Structure formats: C-alpha cells, structure tokens
Computed example of a mutant assay.
Amino acid sequence: MLLSKRKIATRQRRNLVTYSNPDSLIAEQFREIRTNISFVTKKGKCPVLLITSPAGGEGKSTTAANLAVSMASQKENVLLIDANLREPALDYIFKISHSVGLTDVLVGKASLEDAAYRTEIGRLEILTAGISPKNPTEILESERMKDLLQEAMTKYDVILIDSPGVLKVADSRVLANKCDGVILVVSSSSTGHEKAWEAKKALEFAQANIVGVIINEMK
C-alpha cells in the first residue's frame, strides 16, 4: 500500500513542518498518511509501527518526526522512540538532550516514565536513543525491549519507532517482528528499485508486516 508520495525541499528535511506550518501542503500530506495508517491498523489496539528505509539519507527520521507530530495534534498520546542507536537523529530534530534514553531503560538505569521527554507538541513524548551501546543489535533484540513495548502500549495510543536502514545493519530486522507494522520510506531520487526490493525482501524474511511505503521526493 502506498501511504504517500510527498515532495519537500532539501533545506526543509529536518524541519518539523507539521508543527511550524500546519496549514502547508506537506502537513496536509502527513495528515493523509495518518489517516491511511488508521485504515491498516487494528481498531482498539495501540499500534506499534516501525519506520525504516533501505539505507540512509531517504528522509526516514524526518518522516517519523512529522508523522508523530501530526498524530499528537489529534489528541493522541504518542510515543516516538529513537531506536537508531548508532546514528540517532531525533534529539537533533527536536533539539533535546539524548543523555538519557532508550539504552538507559533497556539496561535498567532509568524507567520509561523518567526517560521519556514530554514535548509541548500535543501529547507527544519522545524516547531518545540515549548513550550509544557497544552491542546495539543485541540490546534491541533483548527480552527487555519486548517488555518495554508492552509497557508503552498500556500508556500510549500509538508508538512510532525510528530505526536504522534495513540494508545497513540488522537492528531494524530484529525490531520488525516485535512491531505491528513497518512503514518503508524510500527516496525517489536516491533509493533505486533494486535497493527498495532488497529492503522489502529483507523485511519479509524477518517476518515483518509491511503496512505501506512512503515515497519521498526531494528537490
């Protein structure tokens, strides 16, 4: 299912357009994506959605951030998790500290309640990556990660996870089958059909439920 084909200027890629310019065409496109997602997720259940891309530089983190803002503006309790432990980006996009985050919760140094950053944007909370661990794949594959998601499902209406590129490292693949669905973000100018196909096959091999694709057109 094609969730959206959106066009944004390169200089805007790291902007929270859905927050700074909610009446823009881009913000409207994110509202369309939000609506499309509601059609492919189970009603009455807190969906856990993984947002990934084949490699890097395809606008994945910006997409995750703006989608989270759009959902939170609908009075939904949204948790946005930065699971890109190698190259985190959400702290930069939202201009917040990542000194305490996901890794701290997973190793028992902090609780979800203490580590989640409450923003001023609707009901959006962000769990940054935290300090980069030596074993990202293993920590994300752990039983504690599964427990964290179970806990989060009791506190939020929707959980979005920003993860690394599927073809770069195994992190996204070990997370994929812990989630209800995966959204694949591809760039029309840089991804290429072969990489997109390889990413799709890798996710299917990991038994991921691919709920849709967002084609990101950059000027």
Rank of each mutant, 00 (worst) to 15 (best):
D147T: 11
A89V: 14
S187M: 10
Y117V: 10
I183T: 09
E138S: 12
E143S: 11
K7A: 15
I126Q: 02
T128V: 01
V169E: 01
S73W: 00
I8H: 13
S38N: 06
I183P: 11
K109C: 00
S99H: 11
F94E: 06
A55C: 07
L79V: 05
T10S: 14
I96C: 12
V69N: 08
K109R: 12
V105Q: 09
K201T: 12
C179N: 03
I159F: 04
K60Y: 09
A115G: 05
S73L: 13
I183V: 15
S132I: 04
A55I: 10
R123Y: 08
I96P: 03
I93E: 01
K75G: 00
L112W: 04
S99C: 00
Y117P: 00
S190E: 14
N216Q: 14
V17Q: 13
K201I: 11
N177G: 05
V107M: 06
A129S: 15
T119P: 04
M1C: 10
G192W: 06
V48N: 07
V40A: 05
Y117E: 00
I8Q: 15
G44L: 10
L184C: 05
K146W: 04
M1Q: 13
N15I: 04
K146R: 14
N15L: 14
C179S: 11
E125I: 00
L3V: 12
T191H: 11
E28N: 12
T10K: 15
K42T: 15
A89Y: 01
M1W: 07
N209I: 06
G122L: 03
Y117Q: 06
D91F: 02
F205Y: 08
V107W: 00
G181Y: 10
M218A: 10
L160D: 07
E194N: 08
D104W: 05
G165K: 02
L2G: 08
M145T: 04
N15C: 13
I26L: 14
G212K: 09
N209L: 07
R173S: 12
G56Q: 11
H98E: 06
E194S: 09
D104K: 05
V100Y: 04
I26K: 07
F205I: 12
Y19Q: 14
D162T: 04
Y156F: 15
I51Q: 06
A170G: 00
Y19N: 12
A68D: 07
E217D: 14
E58F: 03
V69H: 05
I96V: 14
I161G: 02
K75T: 08
N84S: 05
I121C: 01
A115T: 06
E204G: 01
I51M: 11
L49E: 03
L90E: 07
A176I: 09
T62G: 15
S111A: 02
L184K: 06
G192H: 02
K45V: 15
